[in-house]
Simulated assay, not measured.
Amino acid sequence: MVGGSVGDKLVIEGLHKSYPVRTGEVTALEDINLTIGNGEFIAIVGASGCGKSTLLRIIAGLENGYDGTVRLGDRRIAGPGLDRGMVFQEHRLLPWLTVEQNVAFGLNGLVPGEKERLVREHLDLVGLTGFARVHPHQLSGGMAQRVAIARALVNQPGLLLLDEPFGALDALTKIQMQQEILRIWEVERTTMVLVTHDIDEAIYLGDRVVIMSSRPGTVKRIVPVNLPRPRDRTSYEFVEIRREIYAEFFAEAERPFAYAI
């Protein structure tokens, strides 16, 4: 059975990230302070270019050269590690490998039979037991993302990072995948951090919604979502939280195109 181990607390303190440009530098993130508890599901929303994905990449260890502290438990994040998994908007599966080979790709140094067991359990977790021997081109977009999720979870990380993982899917598949990731979270209780442009998705999935300001990105506000699961997107309480989050963006926006989230 797939384990339900819970990871360490994620602590971000005084995070500042700039990029050099020809005329000087551009500040992407400024004074980010955020603590994410064990087993929590956090959703991050903000205008395009506010640094949401940069923040996720720093947590994943894919970006460095920042000021401040990013810790998972008592360990400072200084690079990629098996304690963190990441799912991108595109599934990024290797087309020449089968589904089971893609899931097993990062598993090394295991005793005979252990790799096969982990792959089998995680394909079962994402509902793809019968598709182990097929190749990515034979899968729908939603099924390919399920494989990507299984691959990210197979090393049993304490923290799963989701960078707009359903953004390229059609509306119905997107809703199905939101339900799927929520089911997986309820089974695994892995800490999850989701970056999304979809406010409804953020409210439906998140324990808290982190609203980031326009560049330079800062944590403008954190909205708790104290609604029981499964959540009804048409309920008065859900709509009120949506209205509250939208108001933050409209209050900041100065031009029509800045409303895009």
Rank of each mutant, 00 (worst) to 15 (best):
I12E: 00
Y236V: 13
I184M: 04
L227V: 00
S214V: 03
Q138H: 04
D232F: 00
G14S: 15
V70F: 11
A253Y: 00
R221N: 09
D67M: 11
L205G: 01
L72Q: 08
Y19G: 08
G73D: 06
K9V: 15
A258I: 00
E63V: 00
L15A: 04
R146G: 12
Q179W: 12
I199H: 01
G49L: 05
L97W: 06
I261Y: 00
A104K: 08
P80H: 02
N102S: 05
I59Y: 06
M143N: 07
M212F: 09
K17L: 15
R243W: 04
R255Q: 15
R208F: 01
E63S: 02
M86D: 03
L97A: 14
Y19M: 13
V99F: 06
L128M: 14
L182A: 10
D74N: 12
H137A: 08
A168D: 13
V111H: 12
R215F: 00
L56F: 06
Q176C: 08
R233H: 09
G14K: 15
M143T: 12
E100P: 10
L159P: 05
D67G: 14
L169Q: 11
T191P: 02
A168I: 13
M86P: 03
Y19A: 15
R84T: 03
A28M: 13
A78C: 03
G46M: 06
M1T: 05
A258Q: 15
S53G: 10
T218H: 05
S53F: 01
I32A: 01
L107S: 05
V187W: 00
L182I: 05
N64V: 03
E254Q: 14
S53L: 03
L107W: 02
V210I: 11
P224W: 10
V26G: 00
G217M: 10
A43F: 05
P157Y: 08
G68R: 05
D198N: 15
N102W: 15
W96C: 09
